[in-house]
Simulated scan of single mutants.
Amino acid sequence: MHSTLRRLDLNLLLVFDALFRHRSVIMAADELSMSPSACSHALSRLRDALADELFVRTGNAMQPTAQAELMADGVSDALHILSDRLIDRSPFSPATSEKTFVFAATDYTAYAVLPLLVARLERLAPHLHLKVIYATHHDSLDELREGRIHFALGVSHGKATLPEGVAACDCLSDDYVVIARKGHERIGDYLSLERYLAERHIAARPWEDASSVIDGALAQLGRQRDVAVQLPSLMAAPYIVAQSNYLFTLPRRAALEWVNTLPFIVHDVPFEAPRYTLRMLHHVRHSGAPGHRWIREQLMLALDNASSEPSDASVI
């Protein structure tokens, strides 16, 4: 059991991970505070132990082999899990910490939360690192449980029950609106349910296996909309609306950000759709960790400050 691990210096996995991310011996060595020659020697030891070249120089970059590509995610995940499990007894100092926090998010949840948080961290924790990966599910529970991420930005509708071992901070709550191109010949100042259903629609569905809350609300009325364009993310949809007669139902917060720069009109949803809550989830094993606690506090402070500032966005 673990025969490969017994003949491998596990410190070499740190070198592998840095090389895979940077594609450069010099940059990997700099991150690991070692000399480039020591980094090259470590790579040679890795190649001998794993019987594969792992990285091949192509131009100015070290490109991974097929074997390295297969290993990369597993090595990265294992290092994150080990980092989380090992106890760091040193106090967390935001001003000097170089810790990396990994978030899972969609384009919209990242857009709604991270600009506010990053602006605050830039001032208070200038050496901190954030890594954002695409959320593979609306709550990313598997990634949280396995330690592959520290935080997940997710959306819930109504009162969602959290699974055992997961805690959440509610970031913001909002409702949905409908946007239509300004000058749409069939839609005036009022959007009725019948007109809404008569038009064709754009739908943002990040996960193939997840149902749409808008389609679910319509199904309760025994109605169905005609989805002409299905997208894996939200951000392109307003630009498509501006060039077409399709309608798009989206969070009000996002619509208000775009309404002054794109030629569309914002309408209330002409049926009862649930409000949503954007939440930052984390595993309870991190609840008492000083760095994790500090990140959660900074996010809530950033959101509180933003909500207290007057908005000049208007709805046409």
Rank of each mutant, 00 (worst) to 15 (best):
E185Y: 15
R89W: 06
M280V: 00
L299M: 08
P263N: 08
L299R: 00
V15N: 01
A203T: 13
F264N: 02
Y196G: 11
L70S: 15
A135I: 02
Y246W: 13
T58D: 02
F248C: 05
S314K: 12
T249H: 11
P270N: 00
Q63G: 00
A219G: 12
H201S: 08
I149T: 04
A242E: 09
L79K: 11
S90A: 14
I149Y: 04
L79R: 14
R293S: 10
A217Y: 14
L5P: 00
R205L: 15
Y246C: 10
P64S: 05
H157A: 12
L124Y: 02
R47K: 12
V241Y: 03
A42G: 12
L86A: 15
S311F: 00
R285W: 09
M1L: 13
M34C: 14
A119E: 15
I187V: 15
M62D: 08
S83D: 14
N305A: 10
D142E: 15
M34W: 03
A204T: 10
F248G: 04
Q298Y: 03
F248Q: 05
G158S: 02
K131L: 13
H41D: 08
G288Y: 01
I149D: 03
P290G: 03
A255H: 05
H41L: 13
S287T: 10
T4F: 11
P274C: 03
L50S: 04
A42F: 13
L5H: 03
V229T: 13
L79N: 09
S211F: 11
R89L: 10
L50A: 01
T277R: 02
P274D: 01
I265A: 12
Y108Q: 09
C39K: 03
E122D: 05
A168E: 02
V227F: 10
I202H: 02
W294R: 02
S3M: 11
A29W: 13
P232I: 05
N11M: 11
D73E: 15
L10C: 08
Q230K: 15
M34F: 07
T261N: 09
Y276L: 05
A95G: 04
I149A: 09
A29M: 13
R45S: 05
R47N: 10
I179T: 11
A236Q: 12
S211C: 07
D9P: 05
P64W: 04
R225N: 03
D142T: 15
F92L: 12
M27P: 06
E257F: 04
L121T: 03
L46K: 06
E31L: 12
A313P: 04
L82I: 06
D84L: 14
H292Q: 02
L86F: 13
L153V: 03
D48P: 06
V284A: 00
E208R: 14
E257L: 07
L5W: 05
P64K: 06
H22T: 08
S83M: 09
H283Q: 00
E164D: 08
L5K: 04
L8S: 08
D88G: 14
S173W: 02
P290Y: 05
H292A: 01
G59D: 00
L247Q: 06
A104E: 04
L218S: 14
E53W: 11
R57E: 15
E208Y: 11
Y108I: 09
R279I: 01
I265W: 11
E53H: 14
I295C: 01
R148I: 03
D170G: 00
T109A: 02
D77G: 08
G165Y: 04
D48E: 15
L79D: 08
G216T: 04
D142A: 14
M71E: 10
L54M: 02
L82V: 08
